Amino acid sequence: MNPINIPEAFTLPLRLSLISCLVNGEKTFTEIKNITKATDGNISVQLSKLQKWGYVESRKRLIDGKKQTVYSITQFGLSKLEEYVALLESIVRSSSKE
């Protein structure tokens, strides 16, 4: 990954927060909202974009007779996040050598 070609998924702090909070396992919308402290509308819009790009997936489940949407990071999303973190680490390493 080149610093000039950073995927759009990592260009907004909220998108990065959404992806990061799913690394440790699936989360409900409410759990994501509690973690990110973002508004429902912002979370919905950004989750939709991340799903469209293949970083996040969702599924419906029934809890106590109520439908609940659960979100998780995809293998593609995890791989891209790892590449992004490696890029940041290389930037930090190279700047500390200067």
Rank of each mutant, 00 (worst) to 15 (best):
9 A>L: 12
10 F>H: 12
10 F>S: 14
10 F>E: 15
10 F>I: 07
11 T>F: 02
11 T>P: 04
11 T>D: 10
11 T>A: 09
12 L>M: 14
13 P>E: 13
14 L>G: 02
15 R>L: 06
15 R>C: 10
16 L>P: 10
16 L>F: 12
16 L>N: 08
16 L>D: 03
16 L>W: 05
18 L>S: 01
18 L>N: 04
19 I>A: 05
19 I>G: 08
19 I>R: 11
19 I>H: 10
20 S>E: 10
21 C>K: 07
21 C>H: 05
21 C>R: 14
21 C>G: 07
22 L>Y: 06
23 V>H: 12
23 V>P: 13
24 N>L: 13
24 N>V: 09
24 N>Y: 06
24 N>Q: 11
25 G>F: 03
25 G>Y: 02
26 E>G: 07
26 E>N: 02
26 E>T: 01
27 K>Y: 03
27 K>F: 01
27 K>V: 08
29 F>S: 05
29 F>L: 03
30 T>E: 15
30 T>C: 10
31 E>G: 13
31 E>C: 13
31 E>K: 12
32 I>S: 03
32 I>P: 06
32 I>C: 01
34 N>Y: 12
34 N>A: 04
34 N>I: 07
35 I>W: 09
35 I>P: 01
35 I>V: 14
36 T>N: 04
36 T>P: 12
36 T>S: 08
38 A>F: 02
38 A>S: 15
38 A>H: 01
38 A>W: 06
38 A>D: 07
38 A>V: 11
39 T>L: 05
39 T>F: 01
40 D>F: 01
40 D>G: 00
41 G>L: 05
41 G>A: 08
42 N>P: 04
42 N>Y: 01
43 I>T: 02
43 I>P: 02
43 I>D: 00
43 I>E: 00
43 I>W: 01
